[in-house]
């Protein structure tokens, strides 16, 4: 555990909590892509199956359970409790164009051809692109609530911090996981355009709206 890893995890946790609280407090999931949230629930489910097979640490187990629990709670709020506020017409990204290629790739390129390892690889690849329905939705409506941009910033920051964590681990522990690193780079790059808008607009007190 190093500082980048810890702050990355906390940033990820902050993102998840911000989104849950935003929906709960406003009693609305307007502007939130339910498809991205389903993909994240799928990511955590397929990644944390090792909860059943190995114990790493209390921290590890607790965080995995919190992430999974919050992911399903978010999906529940969007598709059940506050379904009336869900903006399905704008959430029109075709997720099969992500899930099918990612599934194929995880079978082809993995560390070990075993069910658990393939599912873990699937989750890593899927996470890298799971935000696309949300970004697509924002590009379609041309705007995002400020609280939604804070969520996206924390979520993007988390994987960027993990990149520094992997550099750290490579130098000090000789550890590297090429699948996680390549997918993590892809994931972080997808947020770059958003990071730019966040810094130049949201941090200066303006609402995030895209030019027509």
């Amino acid at each position: 555990m190093n500082i980048f890893r810890l702050t990355g995890d906390l940033s990820h946790l902050a993102a998840i909590i911000i989104l849950l609280l935003k929906i709960w407090k406003s009693r609305s999931c307007a502007g939130i892509s339910g498809k991205s949230q389903i993909l994240f629930a799928l990511v955590f489910t397929t990644r944390y199956l090792d909860l059943f097979t190995s114990f790493i640490s209390l921290y590890n187990t607790c965080m995995k359970l919190i992430y999974i629990g919050c992911a399903y709670a978010t999906v529940y709020l969007i598709y059940a409790k506050f379904r009336a506020t869900y903006d399905g017409n704008h959430d029109s990204f075709r997720v099969e164009f992500l899930v099918v290629p990612v599934g194929g790739l995880s079978v082809l390129i993995n560390h070990d051809f075993s069910p658990l390892e393939i599912l873990w690889t699937f989750s890593i690849y899927l996470e890298s692109v799971a935000i696309l329905p949300q970004l697509f939705m924002i590009s379609k409506t041309g705007e995002a609530e400020t609280i939604t941009t804070h969520y996206l910033f924390c979520l993007g920051l988390y994987r960027a911090l993990y990149l520094f964590n992997w550099i750290w681990r490579f130098y000090f522990e000789g550890f590297f996981d090429m699948i996680a690193i390549v997918a993590g780079v892809v994931q972080t790059v997808l947020y770059c355009d958003f990071f730019y808008l966040y810094v130049t607009k949201v941090l200066k007190g303006k609402k995030l709206s895209l030019p027509a």
């Binding site: 097979t53 640490s57 992430y67 070990d112 993990y162 550890f175």
Partner: peptide
């Protein structure tokens, strides 16, 4: 480092 099996990263 070992990368398969239980993962310590989240």
């Amino acid at each position: 480092g070992r990368v398969t099996g239980g993962k310590d990263e989240l």
